[in-house]
């Protein structure tokens, strides 16, 4: 750390550097700790497991990053996962070909996302309130669709989704990486991306500048809903069952955490995609680490809380940089 401090002129620069890179350092430290302390950690198998468990979080967090970039938040993602899972189960059980059923599930997520966007854009309801409504109602809808119970789904393709690998990398991780690249392109290289960040920076100014604010917001929430639905399909394939009571439960908070830990400010105007992906991996690895080490529930909760508090502390806006 001393060399780092020397490189920077003052403490706020250190703070800014930590904010930008903290998540990578944290992940590196956690990997080093595991390499030393966790049995079998450095095996391909273990890495493959991590990469098969983490994609739903990454995918949901990507959509969340965009929403947070506009200065909003989408609390409905977990419930959208449940809805997508329930829709998938309904159609599969009804005999619809699996590809079509998966498409319908994703469309269901898209529609809920569009609904969120419409409410936020036109009714001018605070995003946290609008999506909170869907968070509560959505899981109820999912439960109604499946009749409340867990539905087992024995679909051959689910096994490929769960276990399939290309050059040793699980398909689902490749999907997550491609989606991350797509979202990064959207943010960095398209007019839509600039508009999104402009709205997050200052919605009023964006309106005054004549930007299509409403249309952009609807798009952003639609993307978030769609990505959540994709994650819901993957989670269903992983469990080989649709369990609308639990699939995606509290995923909104995991996703927000991944985004914030990854260095995206909660008040909008900036989006960090690689940081978000790294944040999601960090959270998943942290969970596996605690499980591998047989940490009692109580200890696990405290360790996690401490790490999060540290992350949030680092992310706090400093006086000089704001």
């Amino acid at each position: 750390m001393t060399t780092l401090t020397a490189t920077f002129k003052d403490r706020s620069a250190v703070a800014a550097w930590t904010r930008e890179h903290g998540v990578y350092i944290a992940l590196a430290l956690l990997i080093v700790y595991n390499a030393i302390a966790t049995p079998n950690f450095l095996k391909l198998d273990t890495v493959q497991l991590l990469f098969s468990q983490v994609p739903p979080v990454i995918i949901v967090a990507l959509g969340m990053a965009l929403v947070i970039g506009t200065g909003g938040v989408d609390l409905s993602v977990g419930s959208i996962m449940a809805i997508a899972s329930a829709v998938l189960a309904k159609f599969v059980v009804g005999g619809t070909p699996i590809g079509l059923a998966m498409l319908y599930a994703v469309i269901a997520g898209l529609l809920v996302g569009v609904f969120n966007g419409l409410v936020v854009a036109f009714a001018r309801v605070q995003p946290i309130v609008a999506t909170l409504g869907v968070l509560v109602a959505g899981r109820g809808i999912a439960l109604v669709i499946t009749g409340g119970a867990l539905v087992e789904l024995f679909v051959p393709i689910f096994k490929d989704i769960r276990l399939g690998k290309f050059l040793g990398v699980p398909y689902v991780m490749i999907v997550a990486a491609l989606l991350a690249a797509g979202v990064a392109f959207l943010v960095r290289r398209t007019a839509f991306g600039y508009r999104l960040l402009a709205i997050g920076g200052n919605r009023r100014a964006s309106v005054l500048a004549g930007l299509p604010v409403r249309r952009t917001l609807i798009f952003v929430y639609a993307i978030s809903g769609t990505l959540a639905a994709v994650a819901g399909v993957i989670a269903t394939a992983r469990l080989r069952a649709s369990d609308p009571s639990y699939i995606g439960l509290l995923m909104e908070l995991s996703a927000i955490t991944a985004v914030v830990v990854g260095g995206t400010p909660l008040n909008g105007g900036r989006v960090r995609i690689l940081g978000t992906v790294t944040g999601a991996i960090l959270l998943q690895l942290l969970e596996s680490t605690l499980v591998s080490h047989n940490a009692p529930d109580s200890v696990a909760r405290m360790v996690e809380a401490l790490i999060i508090i540290a992350a949030v502390y680092v992310q706090r806006p400093s006086r000089s940089s704001r």
Binding site: L250, T257, V260, L286, E287, I307, I308
Partner: peptide
């Protein structure tokens, strides 16, 4: 899943 949830509870913490 749960661990993540717990983390998240804290982080929503803003």
């Amino acid at each position: 899943m749960k661990a993540r949830r717990r983390i998240a509870v804290a982080a929503s913490a803003a």
